[in-house]
Design a protein around this nucleic acid. Structure first.
Length: 417
RNA sequence: GUGGGUGUAGCUCAGGGGUAGAGCUCUUGGUUGUGGCCCAAGUGGUCGUGGGUUCAAAUCCCAUCACUCACCCCA
């Protein structure tokens, strides 16, 4: 038997209903917040991801599904959506008429990591990007938007953790101060952190090992190194969140794995997902549009982990399963012919109809109708055809009514609406 | 890439050198043409795969694969 690939999954009937309604709720929220949908392709030139995410990141270094399209032309299955959306924004010159654009996209991403709870090689993200707005209010609004989606989905125990990473001016100073600090107590750091110090020193702040956490108690905090502009921006974001009643945690140690982030960054965390505590992450990427060849336009965005959202959302998928309105149970050849005709007629009128075509006993047909949770069963046999009256059984009340053979479709339709 | 756990029926799992098990599901019957509950019978498995030890292996040993959790990293 051929099995599906490691880290990939089937979203089966019974759970797909939950995915659909989450998507519906997300779309509705994007609409009311003024977003339009964009659907970029799932593959891009490898260089796009290398330049935007960063050559030295784990994603680019070892997690991308990359293949050669033709000699020397490398293409990659997208590991995240922002790069593609930015590319499309620049390529179609969306900034020409109005630099301000709010875009969202929902779809699969691909990263070749070792799978575990809440982590797959093909996973889905709900993605939002805003271009052309420098104001801190948009930072706050985007966090509010994400939290609103969570609230609508009845997700419990989530809270936004926010931080500022500074800008081109202040971050290098902080980075240097941090590296100096780390150099002084190199012996106390774990091996991973020693490696991180050179590659991506900010990540050391995020280490979960108790020895490292202890060693870093007095580490310099980014918030102390922010330049005047960045401080002002961060303060305004916090104030705006306060005004909307959004509870947040200031996380001085919060850093992002992707190179393009600057200033405001945030992660929405939950306690109910095992080792994966992050259901959404995002932040500002003011330099990215320019980096990818566009004009100097600021940007900010976030990604919600769809798969993780499904796990922590307390809506019940079972109750969303589709059930037939009418189940047609024909007995005999002649009856099957009519069942097919009426069943198709009902479907064409927008009534969910299941035609039973097994030719089994009425008892077993009734059993199946019950299993499918059908509201009504329409019984058709020789007696009914002779008498010109069909039997329609309400499965809940057990009441049965005669339906004249003429105009079956119309009479059932009017009964159901 | 590294470590732990688990692989037995469609599903959830028990068993632990001597005939392959339970519950649920499914099929049929109890009701000549009426579902859920109940009762009865039945279908369904090379015990993940390959090798070794043994008179005998699902069970012990070795290898391997898959799944899973965790590290790393991230959504």
């Amino acid at each position: 038997m051929i099995q599906l690939i490691k880290g990939f999954k089937d979203i089966m009937p019974g759970e797909v209903e939950l995915w659909q309604s989450i998507e519906t709720i997300a779309r509705r929220n994007f609409e009311v917040f003024g977003f339009s949908e964009i659907r970029p392709p799932m593959m891009e030139k490898t260089d796009l991801f290398k330049r935007s995410i960063g050559e030295a990141t784990d994603i680019v270094e070892k997690e991308m599904y990359t293949m050669e399209q033709s000699k020397g032309k490398m293409i990659t299955l997208r590991p995240e959506a922002t790069a593609s959306v930015v590319r499309a924004y620049i390529q179609h010159k969306l900034y020409a008429q109005d630099p301000v654009r709010k875009l969202y996209t929902i779809g699969p991403m691909f990263r070749r990591e070792r799978p575990q709870k809440g982590r797959f090689r093909q996973f889905y993200q709900i993605n939002a990007e805003v271009f052309g707005v420098e104001s801190p209010y948009i930072d706050a609004q985007i966090i509010l938007l994400a939290m609103t989606i969570f609230k609508d989905l009845k997700v419990k125990d989530v809270s936004p953790h926010i931080n500022s990473l500074g800008c081109q001016t202040c971050r290098p100073k902080f980075k240097q101060a941090l590296v100096d600090f780390l150099d002084e107590r190199l012996d106390k750091l774990c091996d991973d952190c020693k490696r991180r110090k050179d590659r991506n020193p900010l990540r050391v702040l995020d280490c979960k090992k108790t020895t490292c956490i202890e060693a870093l108690v007095n580490a310099p905090a980014i918030t102390d190194y922010l330049c005047e502009e960045c401080t002002k921006h961060f303060t305004a974001v916090k104030k705006a969140l306060d005004s909307q009643g959004v509870d947040y945690v200031i996380a001085k140690r919060l850093v992002r794995g992707l190179d393009y982030y600057a200033r405001t960054t945030f992660e929405i965390q939950t306690s109910s997902l095992g080792a994966q505590n992050s259901v959404a992450g995002g932040g500002r990427y003011d330099g990215l549009v320019k980096l990818l060849g566009g004009p100097e336009i600021p940007g900010i965005g976030f990604a919600i982990g769809f798969d993780r959202l499904v796990e922590i959302c307390s809506m019940d998928a079972k109750s969303m399963e589709q059930k037939p309105d009418v189940f047609i149970a024909p007995m005999g050849e002649k009856a099957a012919e009519f069942a097919f005709e009426w069943g198709s007629g009902l479907s064409l009128k927008g009534i969910r109809t299941e035609i039973e075509l097994s030719g089994k006993s009425l008892k077993s047909m009734m059993k199946r109708a019950n299993r499918l949770n059908s509201k009504y069963v329409l019984m058709v046999g020789e007696n009914e055809l002779e008498q010109g009256n069909l039997v329609l059984r309400n499965m809940e009340t057990k009441q049965q009514a005669d339906i004249p053979v003429d105009n079956v479709v119309e009479s059932i339709k009017s009964l159901l609406t």
